Simulated scan of single mutants.
Amino acid sequence: MSKEIQASLSELDKVVTYLNETLPNNAIVFLRGDLAAGKTTLTQAIAKAKGIEGEVTSPTFSLQQCYGAEDGTYLYHYDLYRLEHEEFMQLGLFEEFEKEGWHMVEWGSDTLKAFLEGVGYNVVTIDIEPKENSRIYRIEA
């Protein structure tokens, strides 16, 4: 699967709709882009579409946030900035990917992605690139 979508903030539902139509109920999604590219903003839009109420924030200092909707849908949000693969494994975060739901991973390393794919997970990567008043979302699976 390979798709490129250009969307402004008001058109972000185009990206979310595409993801909802193509991703399985359990997915690991690596979000890539520079600071302020829109990784957390996309996660917020996904959470809203999944019926998750309340504030969705970047887990910069906690490493992980878990959100649940009334229908039992779960969304996990990770911020692995400056966290090396070995530290990630030592913290036991790998086991979190066994939980049902979408796992949105900001700043995930290539090493972690290769490891997850090597043990049988399908990992989707979304590269986010700012462009004028919009963003380009390059989705690869």
Rank of each mutant, 00 (worst) to 15 (best):
M1K: 07
S2K: 03
K3F: 03
K3M: 06
E4I: 09
A7F: 10
A7Y: 04
L9M: 05
E11V: 01
L12N: 06
D13V: 08
Y18V: 09
Y18N: 11
L19G: 01
L19A: 07
E21I: 00
L23P: 07
P24T: 03
N26C: 08
N26Q: 09
V29W: 01
V29A: 03
F30Q: 08
L31W: 11
G33Q: 11
A37H: 01
A37M: 05
T40M: 07
T40N: 11
L42A: 00
Q44P: 14
I46Y: 15
K48R: 15
A49I: 04
K50A: 12
G51Q: 01
I52R: 15
V56G: 15
S58F: 07
S58Q: 08
T60Y: 15
S62K: 14
L63D: 03
Q64E: 12
Q65D: 07
Q65A: 13
A69Y: 02
A69D: 02
E70Y: 05
D71C: 07
G72S: 06
Y74T: 05
Y74S: 15
L75S: 05
H77P: 02
Y78F: 15
R82Y: 12
L83R: 06
L83E: 06
H85C: 05
E86W: 08
E87C: 04
L91K: 05
L93D: 02
W102K: 09
M104S: 04
V105A: 10
W107V: 07
T111C: 06
L112A: 12
K113H: 14
A114T: 09
A114L: 14
F115S: 07
L116Q: 03
G118E: 02
V119H: 05
G120D: 05
G120I: 01
D127W: 02
I128C: 08
N133S: 00
R138Q: 13
R138D: 10
